[in-house]
Simulated scan of single mutants.
Amino acid sequence: MTGCDNHGFDYPYMKKYLTLLEDGMSSGEPELTKAHARLQAQISSRATPRFELFMGCLGNRIAVCNKAVEENGDYKMVAHISIEGNVIWCIAPGDAPAKDVIKIRHVADMERNRYEVWLSTLSEMERYA
């Protein structure tokens, strides 16, 4: 694999032509411009962190993790959902994709509903004991 980096394309060739294109020293032929756009997309897609949502029940709360990232041998913790349905974020909610934030909030709402149903079955004395 001489002359290749870990991105899988011929690095010296690409580095030379990408640098020329970025510096405005190349004619910017359509093929070269398309190659540059493809490579930039590949690089940015590899640079953005992957996010694979994983939820599991640990004790009395639900642990929400990112399976795509390991931290100290465990999945990276994203949030905790209490039995009352409260979300305690371990990361900024903006760091997770919107569709996953919606899933987390949906599970929290389901937990809150389940908790309220369970609480309503208790007598008043049991509720506050």
Rank of each mutant, 00 (worst) to 15 (best):
Q42L: 15
R50V: 04
E70R: 14
Y17N: 15
M125V: 12
A98H: 13
N72D: 15
Y115P: 01
I83S: 02
C4M: 15
V64M: 03
T2W: 10
K67L: 12
M77Q: 03
V107W: 05
W89L: 03
R105Y: 08
R127M: 00
E116C: 06
A63N: 09
Y75K: 03
G56R: 14
P93S: 04
F54P: 01
D23P: 01
L21T: 09
G85K: 04
H7A: 10
G8M: 04
T121Q: 12
K15N: 15
S123L: 10
R38P: 01
E84A: 08
M55N: 00
N113K: 12
G56P: 01
C4G: 14
D23E: 14
S26W: 05
R38Q: 09
G85Q: 05
Y115C: 07
N113A: 13
G24T: 07
I83P: 06
S120K: 02
D100R: 06
G73R: 07
P12K: 09
V117S: 12
A47V: 13
M1T: 07
E31K: 06
K103C: 03
L119A: 10
L119I: 10
G28P: 04
S27P: 01
K76A: 07
V64P: 00
N66C: 04
M55Y: 01
E116S: 09
R114W: 04
N60E: 03
I88L: 04
L122R: 02
R38C: 11
N72A: 02
N66H: 05
P93F: 07
A129T: 13
C90S: 13
L119G: 04
N60Q: 11
A35T: 15
G24N: 09
E84Q: 07
F54I: 14
P12T: 08
R46G: 10
Y11D: 12
N113C: 11
D10G: 01
L58T: 13
A37Q: 06
T48Y: 00
V78P: 01
A68Q: 00
G59A: 06
I102G: 09
P97K: 00
A35P: 00
Y115L: 05
C4T: 15
D5T: 10
K99P: 08
I102H: 11
V69M: 11
A37T: 06
